[in-house]
Design a binder for these strands. Structure first.
Lengths: 139, 139
DNA sequence: TATGCAGATGCAAGGGGTTGCAATTGCCAA
DNA sequence: TTGGCAATTGCAACCCCTTGCATCTGCATA
């Protein structure tokens, strides 16, 4: 997404309509510093436009995922979070004892990606992965 | 789980009660050839004991996860599946175009596990992972 | 600028899963 | 064998998310 303007152009070019709901959701995702949940987007947009329906938020996020403008991560708290894809691919190590979340560099996964391609011909999409386990302190 | 009997002993030893509901759920998980969903377990046990509540199934599966007797996998179809841990650790490559599921050897993940331990001191629990992407045919 | 319609929205119902609480019941100790 | 109590269950309500459907509306076209 980088800038909302670019996303708007991309949507328009592909024939998607630029409804006010969509534009406001876009802005909310884009304005979020880090991972934001659908509920948070909903609450934020509702301040200006209380008619918004939560299903519109989910449908818009689904669309943005398909267009590869956001990624989705499940950090294991029963609530999926979304993230502007242009703010960088990154991954998380989630400690299921203390709940701590460590950011992990994308490079750590490169050998795995390569191995999967070589051994299985499988093109893994490791855009935004969460790996569970125990952190240094809890182990 | 290997045999239901062993699991029963483990539960008993740890002070968990052996209720008929639990025993029947255990048997269903153990009898399943491959991954089984909570709903499937519920339906199966209900044949003999129609009083069973689905939340008991979920709570029992939660317990079995904690005791490391089953693993949980989300193959992306909106329904989590369970698998007897003793039938071997394995992982899946899920093609999100054709839906094909390729079984993946555990060994492929060993370098990743080692790298995470070395670089982050993080002890990853990669028991039953699903990796999404495009398979050979769809790529 | 007015028109038509495919795409988008709101609504309500539904699906998978979780949780608080009161009632029930394994199981230990007497 | 019985009594007591903490673990377990069933129930109902709830949470997050998805979906079918009727209505509405951006936007291309005339």
């Amino acid at each position: 997404m980088v800038k909302t303007g670019e996303t708007v152009k991309k949507l328009s070019r592909k024939g998607y309509r630029l409804t006010p709901q969509r534009l406001m959701i876009l802005e909310a995702v884009d304005g979020a510093d880090d991972h934001i949940s659908a509920e948070e987007i909903y609450a934020q947009v509702c301040d200006q436009y209380p008619n918004l329906n939560i299903s519109t938020v989910y449908r818009t996020l689904e669309l943005l995922k398909e267009l590869e403008l956001v990624t989705e991560t499940d950090l294991g708290d029963g609530r999926v979070r979304y993230h502007n894809i242009k703010k960088g691919h990154h991954h998380h190590l989630v400690c299921h004892r203390c709940g701590n979340i460590i950011d992990m560099d994308e490079a750590v996964l490169s050998p795995l990606k390569a191995a999967l391609l070589m051994q299985y011909g499988f093109n893994a999409e490791l855009r935004h992965l969460a790996i569970f386990g125990l952190c240094k302190e809890c182990k």
